[in-house]
Structure formats: structure tokens, C-alpha cells
């Protein structure tokens, strides 16, 4: 898992390299196109994704207690199990991807397309590959939940699955923090 995440790091390093190379060759284009970005919107979206990492980790702590389901009422989140925390994480991740879709729609309406110029290509390549990774993570959450529902007794094997998916989710989250700093803060 860790080795594969290492290869994923190299993949995103390549995307960052594309972005920085194109940025250094056409600074004027960057100054013009980054003005279209809605930074507060992206910041809110970033906070949603970062918070999903915390809820994911709360689910992992529940899995390490071998607690798959909540012991209290629905609103007593301190008694939640893996299932409740992963449902919440899934929802937050889905909100993030939805937010990305609306942001893309907005940028396209302002004539920044995938094939319009170097900025559009690098923007959609980096954030698009990240959004694909988030989507794969969402599917992985559903598969983990399916395993939890498939067994009568929650064992270490199911806990391991949840922990491995959480590694992936944290990785995707950290990559987004890097992308956010580079694309929206540094511009």
C-alpha cells in the first residue's frame, strides 16, 4: 500500500511539474487566467475535504476498537462506529466532488476550457486527476462499507481494509492541500 502510494506521489509530482513548467513559460497567461478563480469558494471546498480526513480517521479509531456500528443514538457522534463515520466521510467527499463540478462549469462559462490554452490544460489536468482519485476513494468507501455489512462479526480483516482505504484518503487529501496552495494561493 505504502509503495503504491509512493508511486502515486511520483504521478502527482509529474502533474505539478507540468503545471510549474507551463507557468514559468507563460507568466502573462497565468496572471490573466488566475483572476477568474473563485478562491473563497475553493477554500470552503478545501475545508470540506480536509474535515473529511478527520471524520475518516475517527472511523479508523472505531475500526481499531472493532466497533462497526454506533452504540448510542444517531446524533451522539462520540458513540459512532466505523459505518457512521465512513458514511459522513463519503458525504463530505461527495460534496467536494460536486463542488469541483460546479467550479468547472463556472470556469468553462468564463471561457477557460481544457483545450483553450496552457493554463486551462494544466488546471484541468491537475485538479481533474485529483477529482478522479477522490471519486475512486468514494467507491472504495462503499466497498469497505459493503464488507462491513457482509459479515456478522466485525474482525481485524475488515478493520485492516478500512485502515488501508484511510491511508489512501489521507494521501488524496494531502495532495489537494498541495494543489490548493499552488493553484489558488500561489497562483
Amino acid at each position: 500500500m505504502i509503495v503504491w502510494l509512493g508511486s502515486e506521489v511520483m504521478f502527482f509530482a509529474g502533474l505539478f511539474a507540468i503545471y510549474f513548467t507551463l507557468r514559468s513559460t507563460s507568466p502573462g497567461l497565468w496572471a490573466q487566467e488566475t483572476a477568474h478563480l473563485n478562491v473563497p469558494y475553493a477554500l470552503v471546498n478545501t475545508l470540506i475535504l480536509v474535515s473529511s480526513s478527520f471524520t475518516c480517521q475517527a472511523g479508523v479509531f472505531a475500526a481499531e476498537r472493532l466497533q462497526s456500528r454506533r452504540t448510542g443514538k444517531l446524533m451522539q457522534f462520540w458513540k459512532w462506529g466505523l459505518v457512521e463515520w465512513f458514511y459522513l466521510t463519503f458525504s463530505l467527499g461527495a460534496v467536494f466532488v460536486t463542488g469541483q463540478v460546479f467550479e468547472y462549469a463556472n470556469l468553462v462559462s468564463e471561457h477557460i476550457g481544457f483545450d483553450s490554452n496552457a493554463y486551462g490544460s494544466s488546471f484541468y489536468l491537475t485538479t481533474g486527476f485529483h477529482a478522479l482519485h477522490v471519486t475512486c476513494g468514494l467507491i472504495a468507501f462503499l466497498l469497505v462499507l459493503g464488507r462491513v455489512f457482509a459479515v456478522k462479526n466485525f474482525t481485524h480483516r475488515e478493520a485492516t481494509t478500512a485502515i488501508v482505504v484511510s491511508y489512501y484518503w489521507h494521501f488524496v487529501d494531502v495532495v489537494w492541500i498541495g494543489l490548493f496552495l499552488v493553484i489558488y494561493v500561489l497562483k
Binding site: 464488507r147 457482509a150 462479526n153
Partner: peptide, 12 residues
């Protein structure tokens, strides 16, 4: 693949 050991003989 993911549920290979969660169904049939392996269901638990």
C-alpha cells in the same frame, strides 16, 4: 475480486 472471500463458502 473484492468480495471473493465474503461470499459462498467464505461467508461468515
Amino acid at each position: 475480486w473484492y468480495y471473493e472471500y465474503y461470499r459462498g463458502n467464505f461467508a461468515r
